[in-house]
Amino acid sequence: MVGYEKDDILSPNQKLIAGCVSGCVTRFITQPLDIIKLRTQLQKKPATGNRRFFPTTRAILKEEGVTAFWHGHNLGQLHSILAVSSQFYVYELTTKYVMNTIHPDNKGFFLFFCGIFAGCCSATLVIPIEVIRVRQMLVKAQYGGILSGARRVYASGGILAFYEGLGASLLQMGPSCGISFGVFKFVQPLILEYVAPKCQGEHCVHSTSGNVYKPEYVLLASTAAGSLAGFLAKTFTYPFDLAKRRLQISSHKEDHKAPPPPSARDLIRCHNLLECLIMTAKKEGIFGLYRGWTITSYEHNIRSGCLFATYELICYALREKKAYHP
């Protein structure tokens, strides 16, 4: 189970390892969708309507080739490992404090804020990497590797350029993590209770490790609960995600020696969070705040389901190993 559990035999450090591995696996699977989502969020609306999932995908394939779907992947792996592991680790520590000190009647309220706090800590930690990564995903030739990309970002706006979109990131990641963890902790046990009764009695082969359900049931429940949690979290916080991306390229300067591909030209930029939200609503309508939401919801459903399922299965395996091979 995500978060602190009194009888869990795993330590916070072991759960940190599970978070690192789950972040790595999830990033590799969802990177192509992340590329398409980013291009959709930043494109100016053409006169004939939005460029949606399939047109954007075809354009990237035609203009840049299949490897373009993994532009910025190395940095994305670093970003994902740090983001996911920090979220789960901070959530573990804060929920432990809440469970041991807060009155049961108030625990639900404080557990939600544990998720918000975990999301804010994660957002602050990884935003410099995220800024470099977003620009690499747009213009790989200009931002190159991690060090050259960092130099380019610094040259475009100094040290503050690495924190472009921080306000939007905090407003998006904090509530998003709070909703994700809250929904997952509520829904996963319900699914497990429905599809698989608790293992009880002398025939329960997993009881010594603390794993009370078989791994296939854990996989099913975690994937379903994680997907639902991701969908709800992203839907409620999406306008801030859109603004964050547009703020993160505000100081980007095109280099004629490394021109962007056609699908990454004429991008929308913002310099202020409130201005960005108001401008988007005025120019594109209220639905403009959900530009690219369709592909984003696909990506986040897959990412969240994969993330929670991988995390739970790794924790499951670590419990088994610790119980039978201490």
Rank of each mutant, 00 (worst) to 15 (best):
V21R: 04
Q31P: 00
L33E: 03
L38M: 12
R39Y: 11
P55T: 03
E64Q: 14
A68K: 02
H73G: 03
S80Y: 10
S85N: 04
V90R: 03
L93V: 10
K96I: 00
V98Q: 08
H103C: 13
G108T: 14
G108Y: 09
L111P: 09
F112M: 09
S122R: 09
T124G: 14
L125H: 11
E130N: 15
E130I: 12
M137N: 07
M137S: 12
L138M: 12
V139A: 11
Q142S: 04
G144C: 06
G145R: 01
I146T: 05
L147T: 05
L147N: 00
S156G: 01
S156H: 12
L160G: 13
G167R: 08
G167L: 15
A168N: 09
L170F: 01
G174V: 04
S176F: 03
S176W: 01
C177T: 13
F181I: 08
G182H: 10
F184Y: 15
Q188Y: 01
L192W: 13
E193V: 06
G201T: 11
E202A: 10
C204F: 14
H206D: 08
V212H: 13
Y213M: 02
A224R: 06
A225W: 09
A233P: 00
K234A: 15
F236V: 14
F236A: 14
T237D: 02
Y238A: 07
Y238K: 12
F240Q: 10
L247R: 05
L247H: 10
I249M: 02
D255R: 12
D255W: 05
P259T: 11
P260A: 14
D266F: 02
R269I: 01
C270D: 13
C270G: 13
L274D: 10
C276I: 05
C276N: 08
L277P: 05
I278M: 03
E284A: 03
E284G: 04
F287N: 00
G288F: 04
L289V: 09
G292E: 04
T296G: 13
Y298T: 10
H300F: 09
I302H: 01
G305I: 04
G305L: 01
T310D: 03
T310A: 13
R319S: 02
Y324G: 05
